[in-house]
Design a protein around this nucleic acid. Structure first.
Lengths: 243, 243
DNA sequence: ACAAAAGTGTTATCAGTACACCCATGC
DNA sequence: GCATGGGTGTACTGATAACACTTTTGT
């Protein structure tokens, strides 16, 4: 079965991965490299992405693209914006690059972001020379991908305040301090530990487990989990107007 | 100058208009009508929309589409989602309709919504047989446009709680009760008038004018305005985590 | 004078913020 | 026994929610 690409429509994926150990919110990027007669023409990074196939929904394209790069499925995904400026692929290096690719110069892209754990991705067995970069220390990026990443990050910042998507970036069992560290990484702020603990522990969908951390060289801490079921059941819109 | 259309990419616009007099949040739709040998083949409504031109940004397409239908420019606009299912234009009536149009069956659309005042649109001088429908009483809709409208409405509900976009739907000078009525229309809830007044009047960017309503058959009420300047100046993100 | 809508105050409860020290564990 | 990170309590302040009657105006 041969799949027909739509040559002027693509999906690009901002893959966010949280690294518990370094407490760093990262983005997964792939290398764009091209040389001729010992001259390096293009050497930077881009988001993973691909054309939409004729038979696919946009969501399916995004899922496929993520799976191709990481092997992962069933990760949290959000379509957050379409990018379609006529000149979005018109940087000097982009033009050089596109010559070698089956790419329409006027391509619009539907951008998604994914939330997952850095450690869930095995970068060794991957043919794209993919690499994690901290969101605050991005390399040189091709196309309009820097902008796409920054808009995804903005959306993530806003969304993590009102929906429990933060837990998509953490293992199933986590400590309160790990959640706090993650909020601090994402938002770039300091949070008072006592207030944060109280707030989180009081949520009915945050469940203390009969377990403590193991293999830690200091005092092991209490583990918790997030219960989607309880969250969904108790969830009701509150219409707090706070503009 | 001839503009070249991109045949498989369109922009569709959900035009929200608030009608102060009937206190109704409306959507502007255009008629889709086709008959042959006295048989009515298609008779329903659709969103206004059009192909993206080669030289345009997506925002420019949306702006152009709104202007073409209403004559208005500089209205609040938001790109909220792209729709691209392979079967989104494949209803029976849609297929009949598309035969007559220069339309790719696999078109993805970037959907925008606009916020404006119903009274600002003059429907008489308009060639599309456009008509306002209350958001809660929509007619039969072509393509996937019902879904697009509902998703726009959801986004509007969420957004009006955290950003002062509500004032885009009201005249420059408004009364507190008008704002309350509008919130109630959008959210479908009842709000306590005393609490709402206090809350709104306490905002520094809500400014009491030296004016009262005129031409009203009952007690005229105090007029207020919204100051974008003050809002922008005092605005700073609050990182209230309330998932 | 009447109808209609505008406008007004108080209290109780809850959530957020600020702030500093002791505790349990592994080494 | 000590270094490390985990864990804890209180008081203040500001916002929200519940609740019913009086005032102003045009007709």
């Amino acid at each position: 079965m041969e799949f027909e690409k739509i040559l002027n429509i693509s999906v690009d994926c901002v893959v966010f991965g949280y690294d518990l150990k370094t407490k760093s919110l990262n983005v997964l990027l792939i290398k764009r490299y091209l040389e001729s007669k010992n001259e390096i023409l293009v050497d930077d990074y881009v988001l993973t992405g691909y054309h939409v196939y004729q038979h696919e929904t946009l969501d399916e394209t995004a899922t496929r693209v993520l799976k191709e790069l990481t092997g992962l499925t069933n990760q949290y995904k959000k379509q957050f914006k379409a990018f379609g400026s006529p000149d979005r692929l018109m940087g000097d290096k982009d033009l050089v690059w596109i010559k070698n690719e089956e790419f329409n110069l006027r391509t619009i892209t539907i951008a998604y972001y994914f939330l997952l754990k850095t450690e869930d991705v095995d970068l060794n067995k991957n043919k794209y020379r993919a690499k994690w970069f901290p969101i605050n220390d991005l390399p040189e990026l091709g196309f309009d991908h820097k902008n796409i990443i920054l808009e995804a990050y903005e959306d993530l910042k806003v969304k993590c305040l009102s929906e429990p998507i933060i837990f998509k970036l953490l293992p199933d069992k986590f400590t309160i301090n790990e959640v706090q560290d993650l909020y601090q990484s994402i938002l770039g702020i300091d949070i008072d530990n006592r207030n944060f603990r109280r707030k989180l522990i009081n949520k009915k969908y945050i469940i203390a487990l009969d377990e403590k951390q193991v293999g830690i060289s200091k005092k092991p801490s209490q583990l918790y989990m997030f219960s989607v079921d309880i969250y969904d059941k108790m969830f009701q819109k509150n219409y707090l107007i706070s503009m």
